[in-house]
């Protein structure tokens, strides 16, 4: 999923300060799962903002809407009837959702309420960690199912570096060394020999190397 974290309340208060009526948007997908911007977080933020303003004697009118998916125009369209009365939009979706709303409603100021972090998985309840860097040319099949690009601090394709210690990364003692994980998994799979193969310099074009990316599925797009 795409993970996110709510921005500090003080920053959000400043964003909406000029406005009296705002639309506060949640998204029912990734940000709901990582407890950053689902219906529940929308409720908490709405309540927080109202109190933050009411203690200064200002009444902030907030309409809360949580869309099924904020990165799809079909769902974003559902906002059209509510846009007229809103002076600004505060969105708790990831950066994709925020942009989709901004694209559809050209004349409405749209502010992000969360910082979009990474593509990750949940380790356990309340803990998410980065797993994929979206490089566009997946190597997991040869690295034992652990991504060196997303999970090695130096994105080494031929690790581990000299800073791997007791299975941890030199950058943070709490962080696993990705290459230790890769090695452990290769051993478990009986594929130690694979480690010996040098991975060539990576072609970054399938990633961000060639500018913003687009996928066109002719059969579906027609």
């Amino acid at each position: 999923m795409i993970t996110a974290e709510r921005k500090p309340l003080s920053e959000l208060v400043e964003c909406v300060r000029p406005y009296g009526r705002i639309l506060l948007l949640g998204c029912n997908e990734c940000v709901t799962v990582c407890a950053a911007g689902g219906r529940k977080e929308v409720g908490l933020l709405a309540s927080s903002l109202k109190m933050a303003f009411s203690k200064d004697g200002k009444n902030l009118d907030i309409k809360e809407i949580t869309l099924e998916r904020q990165c799809d125009p079909e769902y974003v369209e559902e906002l059209a009837p509510h846009m007229g009365e809103a002076e600004a939009v505060l969105s708790m979706a990831c950066g994709c959702g925020v942009q989709e709303v901004a694209r559809r409603f050209m004349d409405k100021p749209v502010f992000p309420a969360v910082n979009t972090k990474f593509m990750g998985a949940s380790e356990r309840q309340g803990i998410w960690s980065e797993r994929c860097a979206g490089c566009g040319d997946c190597v997991l099949g040869i690295t034992g199912g652990i991504c060196p690009i997303a999970r090695c601090s130096k994105q080494l394709m031929n690790g581990p570096c000299g800073g791997s210690s007791g299975g941890k990364c030199e950058v943070d003692a709490e962080m696993d060394c990705a290459w230790q994980l890769i090695w452990d998994r290769l051993k478990a799979l009986g594929l130690e020999k694979r480690y010996e193969e040098n991975m060539p310099a990576k072609d970054w074009r399938p990633g961000r190397g060639a500018g913003p990316r687009k996928i066109i599925r002719e059969d579906l797009a027609r």
Binding site: K40, G43, L44, S47
Partner: peptide
């Protein structure tokens, strides 16, 4: 007791 219940009480 949801966090929101507590927030609403204060609100």
């Amino acid at each position: 007791v949801d966090m929101l219940h507590i927030m609403k009480a204060f609100e």
